[in-house]
Design a protein around this nucleic acid. Structure first.
Lengths: 276, 276
DNA sequence: ACTTTTTTATTATATAACCATTTAATCTGG
DNA sequence: CCAGATTAAATGGTTATATAATAAAAAAGT
């Protein structure tokens, strides 16, 4: 029972001023009253609006900034701006949770093989021409990139999976797939800096490209079950290849180095006061 | 392409002192150097350690608090403590993202019917006696609660699904299922305050209890495919019943009321400065 | 002896005033 | 007409000080 999510509201809880302000602004953002690109009032104006002091206001802004709902810039026309929606914050939170729980890379890949195939199946149900065209465009681009730009090839390969879940018609599934992929990607670029595992990867790329084309063909033919099971096999195959590069279970480590371990953050040189 | 998660590190970026401190402490927490229950040093000690000022230190603490990694209490032996792991923060971030994207309740339920059945299937693969016993204990408790405590019955019903994903052996899947359920629950208690939809819910409860028992029996018999498809039917049935209570698509609204809309947070009564 | 109340040290919360830094617009000189 | 210095507006950060809350310890009452 203790694992349960965000238990009851915890009833009597001292709401802190900064959190209240952050909640209010967050509400205005998520309900659309503040749209991406909008500039918030400058700090002193916000202070006045909420009748709080500057440090408190800055705590509130820092919270929203850490949620990547706003981004703050300095300078004459600086200030807090509502950022375009992105899931980096959600990915961080999920990553932290999974890391504390000791989740392994294997675990993530298994989840991926569970989630992605049904999404592929949904594409076969809809048979949205635009989506299928986009998938095929990705394949041809990847086929070309495989000849001369392997980084771009890798990016396009990742993009292919994201295209599947993005067009499957379910936002939640797409979000989850994105989260999984985001964490897997960070993990890989942390451990092996995108080094092609071995030789004979050329054959592997060809095989992978053929599988993608096959999947699109099956989608076009409108057989969800076939698409789903085919794509599951493909993912399981890829998973085994990737995981074979590691010895045993690998627990993920999303937050490897805060910033090169600078023990002291502030400059200890107290301001020298240059003595006018 | 613009949907992609947390793009490249954004290269040249001014790290703020508060964020650096928060990152450092967060790192110590997720890597286990600080365990749940541990007390952080008092504010002034932390200031000294990181060589920053009080407001900046407080900004950092506020960030970590908003991520529910620490909880701060006042009083003689108060201070910042590392909190037990919980996913409320991840749920909030995911909820905010989905709300901004205009996700509907239907979307969430569909995702649930995609994710949960494979988890049930995994239970049939493992046939872990302890897990199955826990599921049956939940059923008998729910059967009893159905007679005299409907709130407890509802909680146990929710718990049953969480037990499935918790014991399926995949932490990621369990997390996602928990997130979905957390948002669905918040949404329901926001719209209909857990009012039993109609009459004849007694029959519905019986039917639901039978389905759960049936699922456990299938798990015990060790037929993953059967469990998976049976549980999918059950969930789709439940989904249709629940969604029938709404007219059309319902976009979720996780952050309905920040705190009763108190426009001004601070007391405007500037301290009267009693004039020594 | 044990419970209840009061005190008190410790800690967080919040405000005010201040200086430093960054950035873009504007003014100036060639 | 353009390049560089100036300036204005904004955030980043510090110090100092005052207030509120709370848990533990001490004191009082039964």
């Amino acid at each position: 029972m203790p694992i349960s999510a965000s238990d009851r509201p915890a009833a009597g809880k001292r709401p802190k001023a900064a959190e209240l302000v952050a909640a209010e602004l967050r509400h205005q953002i998520v309900t659309g009253r503040l749209k991406p690109g909008d500039k918030l009032h400058p700090e002193n104006a916000l202070q006045a609006e909420f009748a709080i002091s500057r440090p408190t206001m800055r705590e509130a802004l820092r919270i929203l900034e850490s949620e990547s709902l706003i981004s703050i810039s300095r300078g004459k026309h600086g200030g807090a701006r509502v950022t375009a929606i992105d899931l980096s914050s959600a990915a961080s939170q999920v990553g932290v949770y999974l890391q504390i729980e000791g989740t392994t890379l294997q675990d993530l890949w298994l989840a991926r093989t569970i989630i992605e195939p049904p999404a592929a199946g949904l594409l076969a149900v809809q048979r949205n021409p635009a989506a299928l065209a986009e998938l095929e465009a990705n394949i041809t681009a990847a086929r070309e990139a495989a000849q001369h730009d392997l980084i771009r090839y890798a990016d396009l390969s990742a993009e292919f999976s994201m295209l599947i879940t993005r067009h499957c018609g379910n936002k939640t599934i797409h979000l989850f797939a994105s989260l999984i992929y985001d964490i897997i990607r960070r993990q890989h670029e942390d451990v092996t800096a995108r080094t092609s595992t071995k030789a004979s990867v050329g054959k592997l790329r060809e095989e992978s490209l053929r599988s993608r084309q096959m999947a699109v063909d099956l989608m076009r033919s409108g057989n969800p079950a076939a698409v789903e099971s085919f794509w599951r096999s493909h993912l399981e195959h890829m998973r085994d290849l990737v995981l074979a590069a590691y010895d045993g279970p690998v627990t993920i480590a999303v937050l490897s180095h805060p910033a090169g371990k600078p023990r002291l953050i502030g400059n200890v040189k107290r301001r020298a006061r240059p003595a006018a």
